[in-house]
């Protein structure tokens, strides 16, 4: 995509968005996002994002702004494109050959889909935690230390150890694993593994952390631990999480975006979204009519 054009787009939202925005807030003509977020700096700006898997369109003209040091939850029925959208933010969709993307995803003033953008450099700044914990077949220590070492964030042994400790502390895992750092990461329980994956992501010192249903494979206690963790982490990172658990979105998210059939139907402050949804679809979903 042409750089000029993307700048244009970020300055004034094209007319096609009027309809979307007005749908979000039928009572006023103002775009939703501007209203919610005056005092937060912008993390990721998405404009007019379309995505196709081969012939079928999975994302339709998505536009939203994601704010720094907040938790943004993406909710919606399964197959609505929320995970696909999440994977656009660190270009994990590149791995699927049939995917075609149009539109702007802007971070730090750059279009991430730009051909000059190095996807490895992008992923270094945008960490990701997956639905199922996927620790590497290495020791707990190596799971955390490996990527920072590769990125030359640390090289001296003492620094590596300090980084591993701080990442594990941040992930709330240090007390549990400090005596068995050299056991394989797969020997931990599911919840611990997921926190190990979070520690692994933090250790790279990203700015944004994407979480793709991070607790769906876990038991309620582990889920609560991870939710607490997310709440603490948002002080330093912008967190975008996909969840199909609405209670979870209501508990932890500052903002919530509701996706339906590849469109973003509503994007709002979480409290507002769950108390007074503006659209019928969101209301039906939140009240459990479908989903």
């Amino acid at each position: 995509m042409n750089m000029n054009m993307s700048l244009n787009m970020s300055l004034n939202i094209p007319a096609s968005h009027e309809s979307l925005s007005s749908m979000n807030r039928p009572s006023s003509g103002e775009p939703v996002s501007r209203n919610l977020s005056d005092n937060h700096s912008l993390g990721v700006r998405v404009r007019d994002l379309d995505l196709w898997y081969g012939e079928s369109q999975a994302l339709k003209s998505i536009s939203l702004d994601i704010y720094q040091n907040k938790i943004t939850a993406l909710i919606g029925p399964s197959g609505c494109g929320k995970s696909t959208f999440l994977r656009c933010l660190n270009r994990m969709n590149d791995l699927i050959p049939s995917v075609r993307i149009k539109g702007l995803v802007e971070m730090d003033g750059r279009d991430v889909n730009d051909s000059k953008m190095d996807e490895v450099a992008l992923r270094r700044r945008v960490g990701m935690v997956f639905q199922k914990p996927n620790p590497f077949p290495k020791s707990i220590f190596e799971n955390v230390a490996y990527a920072p070492r590769m990125h030359d964030i640390v090289s001296r042994k003492a620094d590596v150890e300090a980084l591993v400790e701080s990442a594990l502390r941040d992930a709330g895992l240090w007390e549990e694993v400090k005596d068995k750092l050299h056991q394989p990461g797969t020997s931990l329980s599911g919840g611990q593994q997921q926190r190990l994956c979070i520690a692994r992501a933090i250790a790279v010192q990203p700015e944004v952390i994407l979480m793709d249903e991070p607790t769906s494979a876990l038991d309620p206690i582990s889920t609560a631990t991870i939710e607490d963790l997310m709440d603490r982490l948002k002080r330093r990172y912008s967190i975008i999480t996909v969840t199909h658990n609405m209670q979870q979105a209501a508990r932890i998210a500052d903002y919530t975006a509701f996706f339906h059939l590849g469109e973003m139907v509503e994007y709002n402050d979480t409290k507002a979204m769950f108390s007074t949804p503006h659209t019928k679809k969101a209301e039906d979903y939140i009240t459990g009519r479908y989903g």
Binding site: D108, R110, D118, A121, R124, R125
Partner: peptide, 12 residues
């Protein structure tokens, strides 16, 4: 602590 994309790419 944060690097720009260009810094990282050069290092990459």
């Amino acid at each position: 602590m944060t690097h720009s994309f260009d810094d990282i790419s050069a290092q990459l």
